[in-house]
């Protein structure tokens, strides 16, 4: 303090200068880098969107079927006829089955790890779940084709017998192989389980201890604590987690391609052979596709891109609506 006192000659101008934040090269570099990362993300997304759109428009313009309602995919015909109806349906149905199965189980695992299991057991389970996330999808595909498909025949027959009246579980040919959208849904459920579990677990960990202790103090049982203080607080986080999982389910390729016996029929019978998904169709058709055929496949990729955007947008809306429970207000 005193050492700087002698230089009092320019006091009127000096104080405002000192009040400004000092910018060192490090600041500028870091600010530049983080801005750059942000911009890069936008550029990559824009580049993907532009690429998909340009190639897709070219293909769709020459499509002699209705791109949205045609069942078959035959871009090599003259005139070409292809549409995404079956693919969109198959992608949606298999992902919905996966979500219906995976979300409750994943939340259950997360709650078990955080609230029920002894610390050591919980840690071990968390580790195993992490491992599940590290398994490549082709391994899931092989396992699905080799183990899951042959072992699902029994479940299929049971569902057909007792729930056949629901139409969706009615199997037209009970003897046919269970390489159906339902099997794909089960496999996808296993694949997205670790993502949803891990994110949900972290979110549930964030629930303030005070809320839970307050509930306990009011005489709530453990289940009531979870129902009244944990789940409401973690709900938006669990929804985000589910959306991450859904993203993987929508785009999963190899596992679906190995398990599903695809065709171009749209059927409400989930246990029947057939159907298809966007990524599975791209894998099956890309090899023999001509330049035009590839553009057509890219057009189907664009539809998947749009569906993913819509799903993520919907998730944001849901989360925004439940803001009162989010961590920001805790």
């Amino acid at each position: 303090m005193t050492s700087t006192a002698p230089s009092t000659a320019p006091p009127p101008t000096a104080p405002p200068r000192k009040a400004r934040t000092v910018t060192r090269p490090g600041d500028r570099i870091f600010a530049g880098m983080s801005t750059g990362s942000g911009v890069l993300l936008l550029v990559v997304m824009a580049a993907i969107a532009v690429f998909l759109t340009v190639r897709a428009v070219h293909a769709i313009a020459k499509d002699h079927g209705n791109f949205l309602t045609t069942f078959e995919w035959n871009a090599a015909l003259t005139p070409p006829k292809f549409g995404v109806a079956v693919l969109a349906y198959g992608t949606a149905v298999s992902s919905i089955i996966a979500m219906v199965i995976a979300v409750p189980i994943a939340v259950g695992i997360a709650l078990f790890i955080t609230h029920y299991a002894p610390r050591k057991v919980g840690g071990a389970i968390a580790f195993v779940v992490d491992l599940l996330a590290a398994v490549p999808s082709i391994i899931y595909g092989l396992w699905g084709a080799l183990f899951l498909v042959p072992h699902l025949s029994g479940l299929n027959l049971w569902l057909d017998k007792y729930f056949g009246w629901t139409v969706i579980f009615d199997k037209s040919d009970p003897n046919s192989s269970p390489r159906s959208l339902f099997t794909v849904g089960i496999l996808l459920a296993i694949m997205i389980l670790p993502i949803i579990t891990n994110v949900s677990r972290e979110v549930i960990r964030q629930v303030p201890r005070m809320h839970q202790e307050a509930a306990l103090a009011l005489g709530a049982t453990r289940w009531e604590v979870i129902r009244m203080s944990v789940l409401p607080f973690a709900r938006s986080g669990i929804i985000s987690a589910s959306m991450l999982g859904l993203g993987r389910a929508l785009g999963e390729t190899m596992a679906v391609a190995t398990v599903l016996s695809a065709n171009s029929e749209l059927s409400a019978h989930l246990l029947d052979i057939g159907g298809g998904t966007f990524s599975q169709n791209i894998v099956a058709k890309f090899g023999e596709a001509t330049d035009f055929g590839r553009d057509a496949l890219i057009a189907s990729g664009l539809v998947l891109f749009v569906i993913t955007l819509v799903v993520n947008g919907a998730a944001r809306v849901i989360i925004a609506r439940r803001k009162e429970y989010s961590g920001a207000n805790a």
Binding site: I138, A145, L146
Partner: peptide, 12 residues
């Protein structure tokens, strides 16, 4: 089951 193995391997 066995048949599918080959199919799966082939896809990959």
């Amino acid at each position: 089951l066995r048949a599918l193995t080959v199919g799966a391997v082939a896809v990959t």
